[in-house]
Simulated assay, not measured.
Amino acid sequence: MRIDFNPSSHTSLGVEWELELVDRDSRELVSASDDILATLSPDGDGEHPKAKHELLQSCVEVITGICETVAQARADLAETVADVAAVAEKQNVGLICSGTHPTSDWADQQVTDTDRYIGLMTRNQIVARQMQIFGVHVHCGVRSERKALPIVNALMTYVPHFLALSASSPYWVGVDTGLASYRSKIFESLPTAGLPYQLAGWGDFEGYVEALISSGAIETMREVWWDIRPHAGFGTVELRICDGLPSLDEIACVAALAQCLVERFDKQLDEGYTLPAPLPWLARENKWRAARYGLDAEIIVDNSGVVMPVVQALTNLVEDLLPTAQRLDCADELTSIVALMQRGASYQRQRDAAKASGGDLTAVVDLLLAEMSGGLDL
């Protein structure tokens, strides 16, 4: 099976942001996407170039165009979110983003009525029904299909870095899970989600997808929901590991980190380097540690089991990537990662809000509403 990869000319950038729709009175998720998108769409048909339906009607996904810089991607998102927010406000609906909603029950959610989503539910049953989860996806342009799988494999080393920094799903249906990112565990329960298989090259990826389609496991390549995957049509590597992030400030941080890493790996391949990839057991263990402990995780940094605090690993990585960030004009956004860690990841801020309110999780939703509208000022 031939899968044509549409190569990018450079390390371009695109971001997808899944926004939760909440009733401003109850603070619970509300199925309002059909009405909001119908109002937004030029023809009233629910189609908008940068605001889309998602699996649940309590979610609207906003997407950027092809961007050159993190600042451009941020401005692109901000414009669309402002449009969505203005329509939502008239319906008493607020916008938030977190990996999971603190209190709403997945069993109460309405699924968007498309063949794709109904098919997903039919095939995966309760596993799919529980996908009341929200994320941020970052696309980085790749210059050749030859480079796509080596870059995917190399990025697996940094799964705990991205997940710890973005972790924002400590609560599930009103219960503190004890995890920093419960979303990551819910999502990987789908049969083609989770950590990618370390395939050697594009031909192996084509064979993998062909076997899945031929066997009836999936219908299209879009159903390979790896934490990091190649996107043939866009000519990108797509990082899907991040929990939903409440603010544009945080999105800028993870987008800068992603763009800098992909740019570095692309250059190293041009120079003849073989990109390193973690052993599968190490990648799995580090993902678990980041999901469980967030920024308090100690991650494994070599095959003998040596560990390092993920905060230190991120600090070192920011310093190491700074020359690349300067070339890509995202040095401010990359270095803001250090300020974000000092401020605390979203899961930490959510728990602080719950504690200050005596355990009232509506205070967590209020925090998320405030951070969406006001940012973090990193």
Rank of each mutant, 00 (worst) to 15 (best):
D366E: 15
E16P: 10
L269K: 04
E263L: 08
A164W: 12
N303K: 14
P309C: 02
D204F: 05
E54S: 05
P196T: 03
T103K: 11
L163T: 10
A85N: 04
L367T: 04
Q125E: 14
E68V: 01
S33R: 08
Y171C: 02
Y117F: 15
D302M: 02
W281Y: 09
D320S: 06
V142D: 13
L40C: 05
L328A: 03
W225Q: 05
D115A: 15
M131E: 14
C59V: 11
H161M: 09
D249S: 08
E219K: 15
L245V: 10
T112H: 10
M156Q: 14
A38Y: 05
V254H: 08
W17Y: 15
S357V: 04
L257E: 13
T236M: 13
I241H: 13
T157E: 15
H53V: 00
A255D: 05
L179E: 08
Q110G: 00
A85L: 06
L77W: 07
V111W: 14
G65Q: 13
R327G: 00
G14L: 10
S247Y: 12
A180Y: 07
Q259N: 09
Q312F: 06
L120D: 08
S184Q: 06
Q132G: 05
D243K: 03
G358E: 09
S304C: 01
I126D: 04
D243H: 05
A331E: 14
Q326K: 03
T64I: 09
C67L: 06
V301K: 06
A232H: 14
L95Y: 09
V62T: 11
S98W: 01
M372R: 03
A38P: 00
L317Y: 10
S184A: 12
D227K: 10
